[in-house]
């Protein structure tokens, strides 16, 4: 690692970064009792870049997020923010250092108006003493402007945020993080529950945040989405790092293959070919070895004849 000070303007598209990463994990591990949640994971987040973390369910993505967000502390390895070794004690500490996390499902309060959601927890006030009150005008105006700037043109900032689409809601949550001065944005599966079009809206927005000079950590299990916007890719599998690539060093096909489990996928297609349908689903009864009792050879594979 070089000692060049980080300047948010020097965007290094392609991962040949010479600047200090905004956030760097080096060989980080986390254990819950004797359960290995995460072991030996390294990643870098640079200003103006998107680092994608890919992995299946249970791969350790959420543990990784919680370490970066300050909800959990790592047990081994090094966690550097702006080149300085750090251990975050709370989400508040992470926020103060400019790391904002947008969670997939707990981003907003559905029944509250958009502008109240936007400023929730950091409401601006005016007046003194007992007359200290919310600066409603400013809150409404800022919400509208911030969303417009990112390309979301709301009909009415007074509408409950629950009436927005899932993608728009994610965007409001991201816009909020950007407005409150985040330098690093951690996004937990922002496109997981969205349709194709909505995902596009969110990805465009993520790219807008990147172009604004933020470092982005994008957690996802969709390699197509990741490859569209990402600069670096970290693959997690069962708590360990299964690969770390820059965009130049890997193709979408290879990323997809690795993400889908590569060799495991081949194994699965083997198993699918061999396994007969269970009796209660209309298949024929099988003996202890998995062969149909009537001795007709292989059972019919449920998904057609998948050859390895």
């Amino acid at each position: 690692m070089t000692s060049t000070p980080s300047t948010p303007g020097t965007t290094t598209t392609g991962g040949t970064a010479t600047t200090t990463p905004l956030v760097e994990l080096d060989d980080v591990s986390k254990y819950y009792g004797n359960i290995r949640a995460l072991e030996g994971v390294s990643l870098e987040v640079h200003a103006g870049e998107i680092t994608c973390v890919l992995g299946d369910n249970g791969a350790g993505k959420s543990t990784l997020i919680k370490i970066i967000a300050g909800l959990h502390q790592h047990d081994a390895g090094e966690f550097l923010i702006d080149g300085k070794r750090t251990t975050l004690g709370s989400p508040r500490e992470a926020l103060d250092l400019g790391i904002a996390t947008v969670y997939q499902d707990l981003a907003v309060v559905p029944l509250m108006p958009v502008w109240r959601n936007f400023f929730l927890g950091s409401e601006p006030t005016k007046g003194k003493g007992p007359f200290k009150r919310l600066d409603v005008e400013q809150m409404r105006r800022t919400t509208r402007e911030e969303l417009l700037r990112m390309g979301i043109d709301l009909r009415d900032v007074d509408q409950p945020i629950g009436t927005l689409s899932g993608g728009e809601r994610q965007c409001v949550a991201i816009a909020r993080a950007v407005h409150f001065g985040a330098k690093v944005l951690v996004l937990d599966e922002p496109t997981a529950a969205l349709g194709v079009k909505q995902s596009g809206v969110v990805l465009k927005y993520v790219a807008a945040a990147r172009d604004a000079g933020l470092g982005v950590v994008l957690i996802t299990h969709n390699p197509h989405h990741a490859y569209l916007v990402g600069n670096r890719f970290v693959l997690l599998k069962r708590g360990v790092m299964a690969g770390s690539h820059t965009k130049e060093s890997i193709t979408l096909d290879e990323l997809t293959r690795q993400m889908a489990g590569g060799s495991e996928l081949e194994e699965l297609s083997h198993e699918l070919a061999k396994a007969p349908a269970p009796a209660h689903l209309g298949g024929r009864p099988v003996d202890g070895g998995g062969h149909p009792v009537d001795g007709e050879g292989n059972g019919t594979p449920p998904g057609g004849s998948a050859k390895p």
Partner: peptide, 24 residues
């Protein structure tokens, strides 16, 4: 309607987890 505390009341009733996550 006009204080931070009021905003928090709506938030903790509407979605306590989201409120906690943004520092309420």
């Amino acid at each position: 309607l006009r204080t931070r505390f009021g905003n928090w009341i709506f938030a903790v009733g509407g979605n306590a987890e989201a409120a906690r996550a943004v520092g309420v």
